[in-house]
Amino acid sequence: MTLALQALAVTILLSVAIGIYRIERGPTGTDRMLSAMLFGTSGVALTLVLAELTRLGGLRDMGLTFALLGALTSVAFVKRAWGADD
């Protein structure tokens, strides 16, 4: 099972790596924000996989915290994007 979890962790990292392309290309700030949202979901998944892989239950708390912070980043982005227009 260790191998399967390691493979999943690497796959998630790969999906993040692919997502970086969108930050590079844009073209709008909103497109770049999408990559940040991708990192949010992937980050939670990766942390939870690592929690099982390393048997460190505390990492699950980290995953939960990431999940809660993910909501705030998008709100902050939208608020700032609107603020920039004013």
Binding site: T30, T41, V44, A67, S74, F77
Partner: peptide, 17 residues
């Protein structure tokens, strides 16, 4: 619970963006 938070946050973020 973690997944549910991500779903609610994801759907809300999706709408906002």
């Amino acid at each position: 619970l973690t997944w549910m938070i991500v779903i609610v946050a994801g759907a809300t973020a999706c709408y906002l963006v």
